[in-house]
Design a protein around this nucleic acid. Structure first.
Lengths: 240, 240
DNA sequence: CGGCGCCTTGAATAATATCAACGATAGTGG
DNA sequence: CCACTATCGTTGATATTATTCAAGGCGCCG
């Protein structure tokens, strides 16, 4: 509860200096048929730049768009009526949001670090999927990956201890995230990690401190992690 | 751990009287093109009958088939190396298994109550998806539903208390499951429920007892639940 | 330099797991 | 058909883990 309310609305100093802006408008829409592009999708979307803290899509509002992350980092958030928060996923460049959202968004999409994305009208995407087998196949595979990832997290949340979750998380971020001279750079804060792993801020912090004390990781800053003993981290994580 | 090992292999007395059997072999395979069927898929599969306790697909083995449940109930199971178990989903008639499984199965599919299913070679299904937009769309929507369901469960596992999980579970089963004169008939045992909700057998049992004591439900038998106060159950469940 | 978030750490509490015993039930074999 | 037995379910006592409450420190930005 504390976690949820604390992180519900990040009071970021959002000067108007960095508003949502259409940065590039694509060429004239073509009757999605003879495509040479990877997906034939690119020309349907508009590019946008957004500042940290911005909510790009809001839970409960009509799901009109699908988003493709270009740069930066996002969190996918869902709330319980009493305010408890769950971070369903973190999105990084190349990831999509909204593919499975039907009618209204069941999640909010929030910007963690200054970011940009391409936004596609859902109707047009649907049409493309119906008419272009290549795109259809591509997005079907994307859905498969998302589902697999979600199922992996179900196992984690239902059966893993706090250290195991943290270890798994660090290893996953090590693969996905940016590096800054050897250190993994976490774009999210402790509250986000906590709500992603189903823990509290305090437990996340304590567990990281413990891993540091055990010389498995180093923490140059709060949002940087250096792997000191990857094998042991993998052993702690519990899988394989 | 106790839970996992206890329920890892149900020592059901499996007399040879009820083996897997091909019950119906479909007509000659057609070059999936001019389909009149709902999905054009039916003729690709073979029907099978399986007894309780049987493992129909095993985690780690090549994912050659997709399954459509016809009757009975199944659990989708994933194990941690040390034996801890998670029930990722329960499958009832109309549900599919294996759509997102790539290369090798990342879950086992186990029969909870005597059941039957149709099995489709994955390669042929893929081919159908590539060639038939109707089928493609249908299965894309199925994947969307599965993903949404998984995400809902992520919220539950990461933020809900034991009572809330049990209440949500009962309400969900009330919609999906069979009835037996007014009572919801659970096909699974306590260990399955526990591993599905990320709890222990004992906590599941205690929580159900407590709900009974509070006159929210009745438990005519261990596997039957009568809703006595659906509104209160919904309130307890936490969502909406 | 000052203030505000964010992070860390400690101590007490609450929730759930674990250990253990008993009870109920259903399927088996006599 | 009944009694037996294995399995499953319930309940109690205790242990453990993570949460909650509280305070202080660090770092960043203005």
């Amino acid at each position: 509860m504390t976690t949820a309310l604390a992180s519900k609305q990040l009071p970021l100093r959002m000067k108007a200096s960095f508003p949502i802006a259409v940065v590039a408008k694509a060429k004239a829409p073509s009757p999605a048929s003879a495509d040479k592009q990877a997906t034939g999708l690119d020309e349907l979307g508009t590019a946008h730049v957004v500042p940290r803290g911005k909510t790009v899509a809001e839970e409960g509002t009509p799901a009109e768009y699908v988003f493709k992350i270009v740069s930066g980092a996002f969190r996918v958030v869902r709330l319980l009526p009493d305010g408890r928060r769950s971070v369903i996923d973190f999105l990084l460049p190349g990831d999509y949001f909204g593919l499975a959202e039907n009618g209204t968004y069941s999640h909010s999409l929030e910007v963690i670090s200054d970011a940009s994305f391409i936004r596609y009208p859902k109707g047009q995407l649907r049409h493309l999927l119906d008419s272009d087998p290549r795109a259809s196949r591509r997005f079907f595979n994307l859905m498969c990956e998302q589902l697999s990832a979600a199922q992996g997290r179900l196992l984690m949340l239902s059966r893993k201890s706090a250290v195991e979750r943290i270890a798994s998380f660090i290893l996953a971020m090590a693969d996905r995230s940016q590096r800054k001279n050897g250190a993994i750079k976490l774009p999210m804060n402790r509250a986000d990690v906590a709500d992603y792993l189903g823990l509290t801020i305090e437990t996340v912090s304590r567990t990281l401190s413990q891993l540091r004390a055990d010389k498995v990781i180093e923490l140059p800053t709060a949002c940087q992690i250096v792997l000191r003993d990857r094998d042991r981290l993998a052993a702690i994580s519990g899988d394989n």
